[in-house]
């Protein structure tokens, strides 16, 4: 029903949006950081917190960089830099309003492929400094990837299956009548969980946890640390924003323009993430792997089966 079509000129944003995209993402990640800091301040009975991202950036900009004994500098520095790059590259397929920066025919695969770079990035940052604690942190993230990635991919592919297209704008268009969050709630929930795991966020922050003195980030300071932690916030923002075109109908909504709905829905998803981090204690991967493979994978597969039957029924069979 949705044959691959030649791309109309209006499908993508004007080319200069490609230059703007990193800045948009930085601004969004900045806002999330500030929001999280405000919530943290509230829970400790203080006010404010809005200035926290600015102060952190300033602190890391004046901070000295470090070099550990017999480190592997290439892997180490690359690990920090890859995180923000991956976050921005994954964001090119997300419609900012009606149109994305690049409307790739295999947009969903692109998103998936680029965000997996986080896997390599965290491990490299953990391995690089020749430090036991960060090495353990890096390996924790590899184990985490093995647990979250399959349910994540099945959740994404279920959305693609519902639209019978790998193009993100087609997936949005296919939700014209019914948002996929209603058609495939399991896939949506699994997507949110695995998003947190991919951004090593909230209960899935074991790779950078304080019990390893910062884990994979333990030896990072100055600009390297800014790239790593900034990249992590950007990755979280990108992945949360991807939930909007995949499950929440993209820019669809009354009154407001499409871009505003994208912002509102992304903010709602991120608010859930910020809330969940405080709600749930840290997830250990030696427990989660079992849950992920024995519960989430079958659930997402069942969800995919239901959706494919719906697709067949809509196809007139």
């Amino acid at each position: 029903m949705n044959e691959p079509m030649p791309i109309p000129a209006q499908v993508t944003l004007p080319w200069w949006w490609a230059l703007l995209l990193p800045l948009v993402l930085i601004a969004a990640a900045w806002a999330v950081t500030a929001f999280d800091a405000v919530v943290t301040a509230r829970t400790t009975g203080r006010r404010g917190g809005f200035a926290v991202p600015a102060r952190e950036v300033a602190r890391l900009l004046v901070g000295q960089r470090r070099r550990t004994v017999a480190a592997d500098p290439v892997l180490w520095r690359a690990g920090s830099a890859v995180l923000p790059v991956a976050a921005v590259l994954a964001a090119v397929v997300i419609p900012l309003g009606a149109r994305p920066v690049a409307d790739l025919g295999i947009g969903v695969v692109w998103f998936n492929a680029v965000e997996v770079l986080a896997w390599a990035a965290v491990w490299m940052a953990g391995w690089g400094p020749n430090s036991v604690l960060s090495l353990v942190g890096g390996y924790r993230f590899v184990a985490q990837g093995l647990a979250y990635e399959l349910p994540h991919m099945f959740a994404i592919i279920t959305a693609a299956l519902g639209a019978q297209s790998l193009r993100v704008t087609d997936i949005v268009a296919a939700q014209h009548d019914l948002w996929f969050v209603l058609l495939m709630p399991v896939a949506f929930v699994v997507f949110l969980i695995s998003t947190a795991a991919m951004a090593f966020w909230g209960p899935f922050d074991a790779p950078v946890a304080a019990d390893l003195a910062g884990g994979a980030a333990a030896e990072l300071s100055g600009a390297d640390r800014l790239l790593f932690s900034g990249g992590r916030w950007m990755l979280l923002t990108t992945a949360a924003a991807m939930a909007v075109p995949l499950f929440l109908g993209g820019g669809a909504g009354p009154l407001l323009p499409e871009w505003a709905w994208v912002v509102v829905k992304t903010a709602a998803v991120l608010a859930v993430m910020v809330w969940a981090r405080r709600r749930v204690p840290r997830i250990r991967m030696d427990r989660w792997t079992e849950i992920s493979w024995m519960v989430l994978v079958p659930l997402t597969l069942a969800q995919a089966l239901v959706v494919s039957i719906v697709v067949l029924a809509q196809g007139g069979l």
Partner: peptide, 16 residues
Amino acid sequence: LSRRGWPIAAGPADAD
């Protein structure tokens, strides 16, 4: 520290 909102660093790399 909690009153001032100064975070506690996990290691020397993150400390001032």
